[in-house]
């Protein structure tokens, strides 16, 4: 095992982890406010990937469209899902929302099957994005670099927005104490809507990145990454954006490491490995890496 091989796995892990991070941000924002594990989140990534594929095949348009349009459309989609599926359940037991999110997830998957096709389809990036570069023996693509830079930029923007804007302030207050936020007259529906819009937009971006990376899309591609991203959010400390990013990167690197460094007969257990990682973190640090302890929460 050479140092190059290790670096190679690291690059691959970072690229996968960046996508988990994008998904985890949306999950952690929504969970922070509503205590909802949004199982439909990964399916928005799937829809984003399909939307992206339309713009990829229309080669006359610049590639930028294949990133921006799914991002915007999924932002809208997140808002629609929140309004129609989750908002009517405000005040209902949390488990009602949880089950609804499973239902929404199924609905999105099966609608895609119905409207398009259950068959996987190829997703081919034009141009140089997937061309491999070789720097000191480590191979990566422009896409890997783009993924990484995009995730960093989006995270910085989002953090600024949440820390500086009025809506961001309302989101943080709602996340800390939803009842108090309502009581003092904060428009919590607005704050919740913002969490869905921002998170779903990132899921749309992730759709493009995921599809570009694996070159194939299908109606069920989103579910497992969505669940794994939730694991990442918990590892990082649920409710924390920094935590979601750190958790996503850690999970991506660990997962690739598991496949890359253990004998090939283990690689079938990569999903099991991810979930055992969750169990271990919950045992050692129940609040995750960046989580607030209950005492601090006051």
């Amino acid at each position: 095992m050479t140092i190059n091989y290790i670096m190679q796995q690291l690059v691959n892990g970072l690229a996968l982890g960046s996508i988990y991070a994008l998904l985890a941000i949306g999950l952690t924002m929504v969970y922070g406010i509503l205590r909802l594990i949004n199982f439909a989140h990964g399916d928005l990534m799937m829809l984003g990937a399909y939307v992206s594929s339309i713009f990829i095949s229309a080669t006359i348009l610049p590639i930028l469209f294949a990133v921006v349009i799914p991002t915007l459309l999924m932002a809208l989609m997140g808002l629609i899902v929140e309004r129609t599926a989750y908002r009517p359940l405000r005040g209902a037991p949390e488990v009602a929302m949880l089950i609804t999110s499973l239902g929404v997830s199924r609905l999105l998957q099966n609608s895609t099957v119905l409207v398009l096709s259950p068959q996987p389809r190829a997703f081919r990036l034009p141009g140089d994005l997937t061309q491999t570069m070789n720097v000191g023996g480590i191979r990566f693509t422009q896409l890997d670099v783009l993924t990484f830079l995009l995730v960093i930029a989006l995270m910085v923007l989002l953090t600024l927005y949440i820390n500086r804007s009025k809506t961001g302030m309302a989101m943080r207050a709602s996340s800390e104490n939803l009842r108090a936020a309502r009581l003092i007259g904060i428009n919590v529906n607005w704050a919740i809507g913002a969490a869905f819009v921002l998170g779903s937009a990132l899921a749309g971006t992730a759709g493009f990145l995921w599809a570009s990376r694996y070159g194939i899309i299908d109606p069920f591609m989103g579910f497992l990454p969505g669940v794994k991203a939730f694991v990442a959010a918990v590892i990082g400390g649920i409710g924390s954006i920094r935590g979601a990013v750190a958790g996503g990167v850690i999970l991506g690197v660990a997962e690739i490491g598991f496949v890359g460094f253990l004998p090939p007969e283990f690689s079938g257990y990569r999903d099991a490995f991810v979930f055992s990682l969750l169990l271990i973190v919950l045992l050692v640090r129940p609040n995750g890496l960046f989580g607030k302890s209950e005492v601090e929460r006051a």
């Binding site: 207050a173 800390e176 104490n177 108090a180 904060i186």
Partner: peptide, 26 residues
């Protein structure tokens, strides 16, 4: 009508200025 709730319910992770700003949210 404004309500100062039982148990205070201030937002402990937000700054004092932010808490005040949120009181003026509307």
């Amino acid at each position: 009508i404004s309500h100062s709730p039982e148990g205070r319910m201030i937002f402990g992770r937000l700054t004092i200025t932010e808490n005040l700003k949120l009181g003026a949210y509307n």
